[in-house]
Computed example of a mutant assay.
Amino acid sequence: MFDFMAGIGKNVILMTAITAWFTAQVLKTITSYWRHGSFNAERLVGAGGMPSSHTALVVSLAVGVALKDGLESSLFAVAVVLAGIVMYDAAGVRRAAGKQAKVINKLVREMRVEHKVRDTRLKELLGHTPLEVLGGAVHGTLIAYAFYVFCR
């Protein structure tokens, strides 16, 4: 088991991606506090917010592979396709689902006044704005480059 954990710890690309995700989650918590004036622990693990931690993770993965194996590698191609899918989902599909949840929550609140409707609140902060996705991409790129410079 120790050899397994040591091997994972030596995988620079994996450590790059995990670090990018973790630091983006911390930054997301800080930006949420700055924006709303109160600490929200859910921001440490939740979706949505600035920067996109999903984007930071997949972009750092792709940039890390590019720096280590080159732009011509098959692994880089897989990482770029994965990053594209995740970023599209973050800014497109999940964002649209969050907007729909907001409308449904409003309808439930309004209907509760006149009718008996059970209060089931849907999560509204699911996706990201294009700026949040861009922030995650920049963050992921910087983390991957830092690992490349300091861990080779």
Rank of each mutant, 00 (worst) to 15 (best):
A79T: 07
A96F: 14
K10C: 00
V103C: 04
M50L: 13
W34H: 07
L75I: 11
V59F: 10
T23G: 07
L57I: 08
S53N: 06
A41D: 02
P51Q: 10
L67Y: 05
V63I: 15
T16F: 09
I13L: 14
M111E: 00
V86A: 04
V108D: 09
E42Q: 14
G46E: 12
G84A: 04
G37F: 09
S53A: 14
L82T: 04
V81G: 01
R35L: 12
A47K: 02
S53P: 05
V117D: 13
V59L: 13
L122E: 04
S73M: 06
A101D: 06
A96N: 14
T19W: 07
L75R: 11
I85C: 07
I18V: 15
A62D: 01
V58H: 01
Q100D: 13
S73W: 10
A47V: 01
W21F: 15
E124M: 08
T120L: 13
K99I: 10
A20T: 06
R35G: 13
G46R: 08
I18P: 04
V117E: 11
L107I: 14
V117G: 07
H115I: 00
S52N: 12
T16D: 07
L27Y: 13
V26P: 01
M15T: 14
Q100P: 04
V45W: 08
Q100L: 09
S52G: 12
V81W: 04
V93F: 15
F39D: 03
L44F: 06
S32Q: 13
V12P: 01
A97G: 12
W21S: 05
H36P: 00
K116W: 10
A83T: 02
R121M: 09
V58D: 00
M87W: 11
S32F: 05
L44W: 05
A62I: 10
K28V: 04
A24F: 02
D119E: 15
L75Y: 09
N11A: 08
V103N: 10
T55E: 05
A91W: 00
L27M: 15
